[in-house]
């Protein structure tokens, strides 16, 4: 665990922006912060960043990080970008790196490394206002990761990027994750969350409405529905319920407590030849809409 949020609440006047939220983020995992606008994600992130103090509850870093300056341990890419547009790229990055507690030498090395990694070395001595929106976005990302913090909070990291740059940034995020950096990815793009995230946290109206490992959640919402291509037809059994048959394709729903592995063993034992098997996946966007609607209806 790198971050623990326990029973945190925050109100602004009569508005309860975050209501009794608890979760943990594991080391080296990417956790998606999902939720409609006004769900309380930004307020929660600001509390994690120690910009706002929670009214109740507490936010803790891993025990091995608590002795150090909390703000130095977390890199933050805010949704609304902010850079000194009249300053030069390198001096801006050096400044942000120094603010994160790096020495001059370390700041210079890290800045040059990430500029090179995102192919921005050529523009290092240019003023930020002269850069394209996409390049400004990459500079903003570098400013968040330049200190190589163990926890990274990225709020919509792909907005404003073209496909080439999306690929470049995606690779960098995956690389950081492989290196053990924990990442909080706040996004409205469900396909991106599905691609990157190991875990998701779904918020609505300040409350955490769904949390867990992404695959488990998808499987849970997919309800054990499979498409199996077989010859001959699958013999009847209480192990499954046939939903539809389309040529060799059998759309089936597994009975409760029956796993895919045990069902496959039974098929082989029954003498059925299997040509293909595909679990039916409910898209994350459907889960998002379904859960938010359910929460709204309460």
């Amino acid at each position: 665990m790198i971050l623990s949020v326990s029973a945190v609440s925050k109100s602004f006047g009569a508005l309860k922006a975050v209501d009794n939220v608890s979760f943990t983020i594991a080391k080296g995992r990417i956790c998606g912060f999902l939720g409609p606008n006004g769900a309380g994600k930004t307020t929660l992130i600001r509390m994690i960043m120690d910009i706002y103090a929670p009214d109740e509850g507490q936010v803790d870093l891993a025990p091995d990080l608590v002795d150090r300056d909390r703000k130095n341990q977390i890199g933050y890419l805010p949704e609304v970008r902010g850079l000194y547009t009249r300053a030069k790229v390198r001096e801006t990055l050096l400044y942000f790196a120094r603010l994160k507690g790096l020495s001059k030498q370390q700041a210079r090395e890290n800045t040059d490394f990430f500029l090179d990694r995102l192919k921005m070395t050529d523009v290092a001595d240019q003023k930020i206002e002269k850069l394209s929106k996409g390049n400004q976005q990459k500079i903003q990302l570098i400013s968040a990761i330049v200190a190589k913090p163990p926890l990274l909070i990225l709020d919509e990291p792909f907005s404003g990027l073209d496909p080439v740059n999306i690929k470049m940034v995606s690779d960098l995020i995956s690389e950081l994750c492989r290196e053990g950096v924990s990442i909080v990815l706040s996004t409205h793009q469900m396909n991106q969350a599905e691609t990157f995230c190991h875990d998701i946290l779904l918020f609505n109206k300040g409350r955490l409405v769904l949390s867990g490992e992404l695959e488990a959640i998808i499987q849970q919402f997919s309800g054990g529905v499979l498409m199996v291509e077989t010859v001959p037809e699958i013999p009847p059994s209480p192990l499954y319920r046939l939903l539809r048959r389309d040529g060799k394709e059998n759309h089936i729903e597994l009975a409760e407590d029956i796993t895919i592995t045990s069902f496959l063993h039974w098929l082989v034992w029954s003498g059925v030849e299997i040509f293909g098997l595909q679990p039916h996946r409910v898209p994350l966007s459907d889960i998002f809409i379904q859960e938010v609607s359910r929460h709204e209806a309460r």
Partner: peptide
Amino acid sequence: EEKQNRVLEVLLSSMSA
């Protein structure tokens, strides 16, 4: 100006107000 160009939030992620 810093408030308008939103750099304040980035600064506050590195230091206290």
